[in-house]
Design a protein around this nucleic acid. Structure first.
Lengths: 112, 112
DNA sequence: TTAACATACATAAGAAAGCGATGTATATAA
DNA sequence: TTATATACATCGCTTTCTTATGTATGTTAA
């Protein structure tokens, strides 16, 4: 998933779901570019990680899809389902707790 | 490793190494209790995660061990090696970067 | 014109990390 | 004498990610 970083394991689902809170609907390639832009090129989301993650989120009922053809290319748009909207709140809280605990364990004060 | 949290995957090595920066030497069980105390019981480090991680860090030359018998029980103390002292600096920086990127991706401002 | 790059999807093999379960052993408290 | 705490360890399994590969179209530079 990353440049050289094992640390993001387990956070990908939360990242995807959160992007869809803000953007309403996105397609896979768009997500990779968005992540790249936000992290200024430091985090390169691999296709082998992204697409299985999207499929799993859809299979779990957290995402819904619509397919469109744009410029002769297929795009598969993903959007939060009702369950997805609920679950993203939990996952974001988990991520906050995770960061807080990690900062405690590593003596990293929240940067300010 | 956790209460109900997949997120710590990949951070365990860094957590262990950082605890040994502050405590000079610790044994496995002591590490589990320390993590539990720091996170107020929210993060329960499992033996099936801890011991293989310690063995790997030792095999990688980042930790050195000494064994003692205390109260008729064997304790295996772990301490940072020279390489470990260098590597922990890198891993802490990676963790800082990771947290910063994750906060960006999840719209979590550093709490202050 | 053709090679490289970007866009856009997908899957399969393998590695790595952690979980749950189990095992050994001693000491103490109910 | 049973449960809990201390203290180590390993094994099978699952999940997640990486790397590689595959298909297909559009654009840009040599």
């Amino acid at each position: 998933m990353t440049v050289n970083n094992e640390l993001f394991k387990g956070t990908l689902q939360t990242i995807i779901l959160n992007l869809l809170v803000e953007n309403e609907r996105m397609y896979g390639y768009e997500i990779t570019q968005k992540v790249k832009a936000i992290t200024q090129g430091e985090l390169m989301l691999k296709e082998g990680a992204l697409y299985p993650a999207l499929h799993k989120l859809e299979a779990d009922g957290l995402l819904e899809t619509t397919t469109e053809v744009v410029d002769n290319r297929v795009r598969k748009y993903y959007a939060l389902s009702k369950d997805g909207e609920k679950e993203v709140i939990n996952k974001l809280q988990d991520a906050k707790d995770f960061i807080a605990h990690l900062q405690l364990l590593l003596n990293l004060k929240p940067s300010f």
